[in-house]
C-alpha cells in the first residue's frame, strides 16, 4: 500500500468508528437499564444580542459579571429606576416580558440583580454598596430565608476572586459554552447525573435588563402551596432593617413581595412591612404551578408578573417616587 492509500484507509476507519460509536452510545442502557438523557442545548443566538450565558445548573456567571463588573450589566443597573433584588425565584417568577416591558412603556428602566444559588439579601446589599447603585424603587422579593444573614458559598468564592481570576473564570466558561452550544447541534450531549425534576435549566442573562432568559426550563408541573406560618419572624428583621437603612440613605423606596413556590411562607411580609414601614405586595397564587417545585413555570409566572405590576403601580408611594401620573 502506498503512503497515500494507508492514510486514506486510516481516515476511513477513523470516520467509520466515529460514526458508529456516536450513533451507538446514546442507545446504550448504561445507567440502571434506563437510557441517559440527551440534553438539548438551544443556539446561543436565540437569546438576543445583549444576552450572556450564565448557567446550566452549575456555578452562575451572573455573580461574577455583577460583582466584578464584567460587561455592561452594572452600567445598566446604575441607570435603573426600579431595581429588583432576590433569588432565582424572582428571576423566574417576575418575568422580563411583563416587568421590564411595562416599565419601559412608562419611560422607566427596570433592572434585576437577583441571582441564583439561593443567595440572600446580603449579596444584593454588597452589590448596591460596591457599585453605588441609586435606583428610585427597590423591589425585594423572597421567602423569609432571603432576609436571613449569609452568603452562598459561590457568592463568597466570587467575592474572594481578584479581577484576574474573575475575568478568567467568566470568559473561559463563556467560551466553553459557546463551543458546546454549537457542537451539540450536531452531536448529542448525554447527561447521566442531572436526571432529577429540577433539570435541565439553561439560563442566559440580559446585560440590559439583568433578567435571565431561560433557554431551557424543566418540564415538571408542581402546584404552589402554602405552609403554616412560624410563630415569629423576628430573625428576618436585622438584615431587612439594614437594607432599609441603606436604601433610605440613597433615597430609594423599598417594596416587599414574594414569588410563590412549594410550601411558601408569607408571614414575614406583613411583619417586615409593619416593622420597617414599607409597603408590600402579595399577588394572587391561585392555581399557580412550578416547573421544578421551586420556580414558577412560564404561564404562571406571566400571570403573577401582571398581577404584581398592577398592584405595584397602584401603590401611592411608588407613584410618588416614580413620578407617575
Amino acid at each position: 500500500m502506498s503512503k497515500l492509500q494507508t492514510r486514506l484507509f486510516s481516515f476511513v476507519l477513523f470516520a467509520f468508528s466515529f460514526a458508529v460509536v456516536s450513533v451507538l452510545i446514546p442507545r446504550l442502557p448504561l445507567r440502571d437499564g434506563s437510557l441517559p438523557r440527551a440534553v438539548e442545548i438551544p443556539p446561543y443566538s436565540d437569546q438576543g444580542d445583549d444576552a450572556l450565558f450564565v448557567s446550566n445548573g452549575s456555578e452562575e456567571l451572573s455573580h461574577i459579571a455583577l460583582y466584578h463588573e464584567i460587561g455592561s450589566s452594572i452600567e445598566h443597573a446604575r441607570r435603573a429606576d426600579i431595581l429588583l433584588i432576590g433569588n432565582s425565584r424572582v428571576q423566574t417568577g417576575l418575568r422580563e416580558a411583563v416587568i421590564s416591558e411595562e416599565a419601559r412603556k412608562l419611560g422607566l428602566k427596570a433592572f434585576t440583580i437577583a441571582t441564583g444559588h439561593a443567595d440572600k439579601t446580603r449579596f444584593a446589599l454588597e452589590l448596591i454598596r460596591k457599585h453605588d447603585l441609586n435606583p428610585r424603587v427597590v423591589i425585594a422579593s423572597g421567602g423569609p430565608f432571603v432576609f436571613t444573614e449569609g452568603l452562598s458559598p459561590w457568592a463568597r468564592e466570587v467575592m474572594h476572586m481578584n479581577r484576574w481570576e474573575a475575568n478568567k473564570r467568566f470568559h473561559e466558561r463563556s467560551a466553553a459554552w459557546l463551543v458546546k452550544s454549537r457542537l451539540h447541534r450536531y452531536l448529542p450531549r448525554l447527561d447521566f447525573f442531572n436526571l432529577g425534576p429540577g433539570f435541565p435549566w439553561i439560563h442566559y442573562r440580559s446585560e440590559t435588563t439583568g433578567w435571565w432568559r431561560n433557554a431551557l426550563e424543566p418540564p415538571g408541573r408542581f402546584p404552589v402551596s402554602l405552609q403554616p406560618e412560624r410563630k415569629s419572624y423576628r430573625h428576618t428583621l436585622p438584615l431587612a432593617r439594614e437594607l432599609k437603612q441603606e436604601l433610605d440613605s440613597r433615597g430609594a423606596l423599598l417594596v416587599l413581595t414574594i414569588v410563590p413556590y412549594l410550601d411558601t411562607r408569607i408571614g414575614h411580609l406583613p411583619y417586615l412591612s409593619r416593622e420597617l414601614g414599607v409597603p408590600y405586595i402579595l399577588p394572587s397564587f391561585n392555581g399557580m404551578l412550578t416547573a421544578d417545585g421551586s420556580h414558577l413555570e412560564r404561564n404562571s409566572a406571566l400571570r403573577l408578573s401582571a398581577d404584581f405590576w398592577q398592584q405595584f403601580v397602584a401603590l401611592e408611594s411608588v407613584r410618588v417616587k416614580l413620578s407617575l401620573e
Binding site: 494507508t6 484507509f9 486510516s10 481516515f11 476507519l13 477513523f14 470516520a15 467509520f16 468508528s17 466515529f18 460514526a19 458508529v20 460509536v21 456516536s22 452510545i25 446514546p26 457542537l183 452531536l187 448529542p188 450531549r189 448525554l190
Partner: peptide, 17 residues
Amino acid sequence: TYERSFVAGAMLAVLLV
C-alpha cells in the same frame, strides 16, 4: 496505524458525547 485510527474515531465520539 489502522488500529489506532479505529480506536481514535471511537474515543473522539465518546469524548464529544
